[in-house]
Structure formats: structure tokens, C-alpha cells
Design a protein around this nucleic acid. Structure first.
Lengths: 244, 244
DNA sequence: CGCCCTTTTGAAGAAAATCAAGGGCAGTGG
DNA sequence: CCACTGCCCTTGATTTTCTTCAAAAGGGCG
């Protein structure tokens, strides 16, 4: 059942043939539930499996020398985590469950084999990595203006949720605390709070009960200078600031 | 001749068999010289070739809505640029020559074919990507303290230069202007200057004539909280703050 | 009911940006 | 040969943004 998150994600990355689907469905996935705030993968681990988030939200983070935490990415259902297994490398960061979630563990060699036989699958894995990287680069563009940063993060998460069917009509679940948002943007929780309140007062968004409602999408994308094309760079086309 | 940069890099990523070497040497590389400050790849381009920097330094950057520039990575000889070709994707960033340099253009399909036949080559490309990503994540950890950020960037660049034989005995070429360093760290050139002067006054480094000399490596790595293991995560071992 | 986690608010302080201007050095051209 | 020009580095004064510290107010849950 949960396995569908992987198919949904793959289908959003490439056009899957029936054979691709069969190959994916044939993969044996070990479903591991992880409770909120528990680690999915720890720093220094050498995962020997390929991991996919099947349900819930997770975050990648690293702890600084001074003990502060920086979140370097959020993971939604269908996202891969710890592709390090492919490279027999150790994790230089940790992954934590933001909400209760279920992780799928796949045999790394089996994934390799499928990727080798089905070019589309291989392509999909590369594209997923490409997006990961593009998102990291976008995050590096933040840092100047907190208002813009928060707006951009909300746009990113809304579009990504939408891509896997978790957002509609301007609403989506956003199970992040303000502290987590701050850790992702490199600002304090206090400052995050003030920025979010400004976005609320200006009637750009509503954000409460871990539910995001985009009230004024044009204003939000304008504030964020958001262009969604980096989230699907293989699609030719004009820059697009729309969220849906 | 220049082609050796690719072999040097590959050899630093994986153990190459003679057959791997032959396969790499058999690749036809189109050598394209690019003058300082000229574009290697432009934003929006859809590269149909696989690019490798053969000599010189380059930088990946993106221009913000307000016109400011953020450098999101530096490229040294042997580094790949625009792997987007693998995914038939358009570049969401641009690449510029920091110094005069030579780029190698390889046929994407030919690289694909070699990667499919030689597992080590495929592995090497993945590892290179993994490092790219790890570097991006480290850069996200900056942003708190400019002194630490500058120190960390210097450590990163020194180690990367060293890996491809461009650094020795605490010295390496560092052809960056202070403005470029600032654009990479998200701080102004003025502030960059003050930080570098502090590092100089404290006798931690010498930096002039585009030549970096590490005078006090322990002090530098301490200031940076530097641990080089993210630059070769497949090597098991303790954290290492050493630069050589 | 009371506890913990999260959000909210206020005031003071620090880091870095901004603005402005001077100086060194290399290359160019008269 | 020397003035000129452009690029980069340097320095100072002021302002903005964000942090830090502190404390209070909600809100869900045992």
C-alpha cells in the first residue's frame, strides 16, 4: 500500500513503462515505521540499503560545532534518503522524522540491478538527485532576507507536496515547528515567528495547526522570487511562478 | 595532455583498472579554451555534452532577483560541470571561468556507455556527485559566523586542490578575488576583507598574489571546525582535521 | 488540573550591510 | 618613460537586520 509513494514519485520523474512499473513493484520493500523525532539514519552510519520515505515528513540535518542544528533539507513521501548506500559511503549527516513516518528499505544491489536494466529508473534516480542538488543551491541563495527565505521555503514545500498529491487548492499540511523552519533557513525561531506573522498580517498565507493555506499565491511567489522550474528542470518551458 | 586532469580526478575517486583507464582514454574529448570571466555554461542552456574542467578554476553561480550574485560552488581541474546533460535537463545556474581555463566536452552517450560497461566509472561519477552535494550542505552550515565560514572555505579549497595535486607544503594557488569569496559565502566583499585581515593578523594564513599559504594549519582547521571526511565519505576512518 | 511544547512579545546588543572614499598595482597608450 | 585607467584591496562611519535574553501566553494531553 505504502509502496505507492515510490511509484508516484518515480512517475513524477519519468514516464514509466509497464515493465518499469513491474520491476519496481517486484522490489521487496521492508517497511519500517519511525516515530516523530526519532532518527531514520544517523550520522556516520554506512547504510547498506537504499531508503525511500513512504509516508510522513523527515529532515536532513547536521549539528554544528557549537551544538546548533542546521536542517539541510526536508523529505516528503517518495523521496530517497541516504543514497550513500550506492557509493558505500558513510552518512555525513543525519535524518530525523518530523512526523511519524514509514521508511522503505530496499536492497541496494537489487536497486542497482533494476537501474541497470531499466534506463528510465536509472534516469529517475539521477533526476531525483538533480532536484536534491537544485534545492540545496536554492537554499544557498537565501541568507540575505528572512522574509524572502521563508516565502521561498513555503513555495518549495507546497510545490513538492503538490507533485506527490499532498496539496490542493492552496492548502497543504506543513508539519514543521517554527524552530524547524528557522533551523532550515539559518535564522532563529524568534525571527521566524516575526516573519510568519508578517506574512499572516499581509494576508499572504495562513499557517496554523500545521496546515498551510496560501491566500495570495501571486504575492507569495513574488515575495519569494519563486520559479518552480528548478524542481523539474527536464521540462522545457518558460519560468513559472505558479504553485499548481 | 590536459586530459590527464580527468584521469587524476577519477583515480582519486575510485581504484581504476587498466581497462577503466583505457576506456577513459578512448573517450574523445573536445578541448575548449575559455577566457577568464567568460561563461562555460549559461543558465537555461541544455547541454548535450558532458563537461569536465581540464585546467583552471571555474565557479557555479546564480543571480538573485535583486541582481546580486551567489556563487554556489567552485570547480577545480577534473571536476564535472553540467551533469545536467545526463538528464536532458536545462541548467538552472551558470558556470563562469574564474581563471583562463580549458573545458573538455565529451559526448554524453559515450560517457553513458562507458559508465554502463565499467562499474568503477559509474561509481566514480556517483561519488563525484555525492561530494558536490556534501560540499553544498557544508556551505549551508556557514552563515552564522563569517570568520568560520572563510576559514572553512579555505580548508575545503586547499584539500580539493591537494587531491588533484595542486597544493603542497601548505601552499596553493587561490585565484579568487575577495568579492568572489564573499559571493560564495553570502557576505560582502568589505566584510570578507576584514575577516581575511584578521586571519592574516593572527598569523593563521597568508593570502596575497592569489597564493594561499597556510601558516598555522591547526589554528585554521580549528577556526573552521573542519573535518575533511565529507570530501571522501567512502573512506572509513576517524574524523580528520588535517589538510594534507 | 497541571505539564510540556510551541508560539508570541519586548528590549537590548552584536554581526554584518551599506555608503563612501582612498590607495596600490598592472596593463595601456600616448 | 610616464600618465592614465580599471580592478582590486583597504579603511572608516553609520545603519539595518537579526540575535540574544527573558518572560508570558496558548494548546494539547496524561
Amino acid at each position: 500500500m505504502q509502496q505507492s509513494a515510490l511509484l508516484t514519485k518515480m512517475a513524477s520523474l519519468v514516464t514509466l513503462t509497464d515493465e518499469d512499473r513491474r520491476a519496481l513493484e517486484a522490489l521487496s520493500i521492508d517497511e519500517v515505521p519511525v516515530a516523530r523525532r526519532r532518527a531514520l539514519l544517523t550520522q556516520g552510519a554506512r547504510p547498506d540499503h537504499f531508503h525511500v520515505l513512504l509516508s510522513g515528513w523527515a529532515a536532513r540535518y547536521e549539528v554544528r560545532a557549537d551544538g546548533s542544528r542546521r536542517i539541510t533539507g526536508f523529505m516528503l513521501p517518495g523521496d530517497f534518503c541516504g543514497i550513500h548506500a550506492i557509493c558505500h559511503a558513510s552518512m555525513d549527516h543525519a535524518i530525523i522524522a518530523i512526523t511519524d513516518c514509514v521508511v522503505g528499505r530496499l536492497d541496494a544491489a537489487a536497486v542497482d540491478a533494476v537501474a541497470a536494466r531499466q534506463p528510465a529508473i536509472n534516469q529517475a534516480i539521477w533526476r531525483a538527485k538533480l532536484i536534491d542538488e537544485a534545492v540545496l543551491r536554492k537554499w544557498l541563495l537565501f541568507s540575505t532576507d528572512a522574509y524572502q527565505s521563508v516565502a521561498h521555503l513555503l513555495c518549495e514545500l507546497y510545490v513538492r507536496a503538490s507533485t506527490v498529491g499532498l496539496a490542493a487548492r492552496g492548502r497543504c499540511r506543513l508539519p514543521l515547528t517554527q524552530e524547524e523552519i528557522g533551523d532550515a533557513l539559518g535564522i532563529t525561531a524568534v525571527h521566524t515567528n516575526r516573519v510568519i506573522q508578517r506574512l499572516r498580517n499581509e494576508r499572504v498565507i495562513d499557517l496554523s495547526q500545521h496546515e498551510l493555506t496560501v491566500l495570495d499565491a501571486p504575492a507569495l511567489t513574488r515575495a519569494a522570487a519563486f520559479d518552480r522550474s528548478y524542481l523539474a528542470p527536464w521540462i522545457a518551458g518558460e519560468p513559472s511562478a505558479s504553485l499548481d
